[in-house]
Design a binder for these strands. Structure first.
Length: 467
RNA sequence: GGCGCCUUGGCGGAGUAGUUACGCAGCGGUCUGCAAAACCGUGUACACGGGUGCAAAUCCCGUAGGUGCCUCCA
């Protein structure tokens, strides 16, 4: 299993600390609003990673956090907590917001056929762990307190800028945003924030430094260490997190333990819509509901995600989603050929499932090359559609479909046979046709169409497919 | 202002030196009772200008446009 490692900027073979177990931490959502397609792209990328690891004989132990406190509107540790802001927007408490959008997120995982992580820890349920980690950092001299919180002193972690390849001096010279002048360094970040003196927050806890709430970054370190140990194999997240969030995670974790935090870093690139990034301010945050309202399926959306490589910036458009929907329909039409092999015993496509499985596993194992995997599959399904499935290969085909579904999260094997009523309509049409009763045969065809079943007349008889 | 990345046929999207990528859509034809599907055929694609090479979409330099991070954000 090979993966591009942001740490070394090269594709590397994954060698877990305790193979075949592989520990994986993926940055999860901040649950203050509906996720948009860009967010879901990344979560599907994680899912593909997990499935690829499994296919390549590794056993992932997967943790994805739920950020339900402490993520401020600005990464510069200023501004409002997103949860509190969401609460004000909807006239609820921050706890209500976290519950509602947290539940929505988990439903979204299911709707997109994303595997459930082994752990989905919430930041608010790990306050003690976070406080303990800050204490450790304090004891080791990495922290200092100012009026609004306890901060990490990045100047005491000399390789801070290495991970993101930043030139801190240059950046500061041209920085557009001013930072809290009490901070010792621009890159210092909050470990613990104090509650405002004149305001009662929905979410706040006591700590050795005063009442407040944890900084956004510390949760990931605390929770990954709790569930996966001080050094994890793979840490994954959105590409935007390289400069701030992940640099901070590395700094605070390695400062606390003296050990490497993660051996492999996998970053999913972003997508654009109409050539622009997705952001709240642009108002182009398409949701899963928008996709369904347009008549597309979430499975087609998933296939659309797989059509591009996770390291490239890819584009989302309704046109490309339609293309994926059509491609999926063709695949589904091929999948149901296994119910229609009665007269193709002599001809039809034959193949060996294990051979194709090996190829697919290698493609996914080569830095998650999903575009190439789809090319392979389109070739196979295309051949099936043109020549039919050999009747002796139904079981082989079924095995392959189950494997494809497990690797790519599709539901091809689940494509069911049609019921007897529909089958009778088809055979009634066949006999009408043999009697050249075109009126009746067209009428029956219309009936089938209205029930979502299309037909193609071949030399071996009518083949049905779902419209 | 600093540091990056990108630019492939109608749309999406692989490909880092020499092979038709591929998908979706389109066009012409065959087949068909009519359709549909399928099949056959069909697009002088690699932003522009130089350079290196026997050979460049692929490497180097420059130009133009776009875009990302340094605010929000997967």
């Amino acid at each position: 299993m090979k993966l591009y490692n942001t740490l070394t900027k090269s594709v590397e073979v994954i060698t877990p600390l305790q193979s075949p177990a592989v520990t994986l931490y993926t940055c999860g959502p901040t649950v203050y609003d509906f996720p948009h397609v860009g967010n879901w792209f990344t979560f599907i990328r994680y899912d593909v990673l997990v499935r690829a690891l499994k296919a390549n004989h590794l056993q992932p132990k997967w943790v994805m956090n739920i950020t339900d406190v402490g993520h401020l509107v600005s990464d510069a540790d200023e501004g409002e907590d997103k949860l509190e802001k969401g609460a004000r927007r909807e006239g609820k408490t921050a706890w209500d917001i976290a519950k509602f959008y947290g539940d929505y997120f988990i439903q979204g995982l299911n709707r997109l056929n994303i595997l459930q992580p082994d752990f989905l820890p919430k930041a608010t349920e790990h306050i003690d762990e976070q406080i303990r980690l800050v204490k450790t950092l304090e004891e080791k001299g990495f922290t200092y307190a100012i009026s609004d919180g306890v901060y990490f002193d990045t100047s005491k972690f000399p390789k801070y800028a290495e991970f993101a390849g930043l030139d801190l001096d240059e950046q500061q010279a041209g920085a557009r945003v001013e930072y809290n002048p009490e901070k010792r360094n621009a890159t210092d970040f909050a470990l613990w924030k104090f509650s405002p003196k004149d305001e009662k927050r929905d979410m706040e806890w006591d700590s050795p430094w005063g009442k407040g709430f944890p900084g956004w970054h510390i949760e990931c370190s605390a929770m990954s260490m709790k569930y996966l140990g001080e050094t994890l194999d793979i840490h994954s997240g959105g590409i935007d997190h390289i400069p701030v969030h992940h640099s901070n995670e590395i700094a605070q974790s390695e400062a606390a333990t003296g050990k490497p935090f993660a051996n492999y870093w996998m970053h999913a690139n972003h997508i654009t819509v109409n050539g622009e990034k997705i952001s709240k301010s642009l108002g182009n945050g398409i949701t899963l509901e928008d996709i369904e309202a347009k008549g597309s399926s979430l499975e087609a959306f998933r296939l659309h995600v797989l059509e591009s490589h996770y390291r490239n910036q890819s584009k989302f458009s309704w046109e490309s989603l339609d293309a994926a929907q059509n491609r999926l329909k063709n695949w589904q039409a091929a999948a149901v050929l296994r119910y229609q092999t009665a007269s193709s015993s002599s001809g039809g496509t034959t193949f060996t499932a294990t051979e194709i499985q090996t190829q697919l596993t290698e493609l996914l194992g080569d830095d998650l090359n999903t575009p190439r995997a789809l090319v392979l599959l389109s070739g196979i399904f295309g051949q099936l559609e043109s020549t039919g499935l050999h009747s002796a290969h139904v079981a082989e085909f079924e095995t392959l479909l189950v494997f494809i579904d497990s690797l790519l999260g599709l539901t091809l094997a689940a494509q069911a046979d049609i019921d007897d009523d529909l089958k009778q309509l088809i055979s009634a049409r066949e006999s009408a046709r043999s009697k050249q009763d075109w009126t009746k045969s067209d009428e029956l065809r219309d009936q089938l169409t209205s029930q979502g079943i299309g037909l193609r007349d071949t030399e071996q008889g009518a083949i049905w497919f779902r419209l």
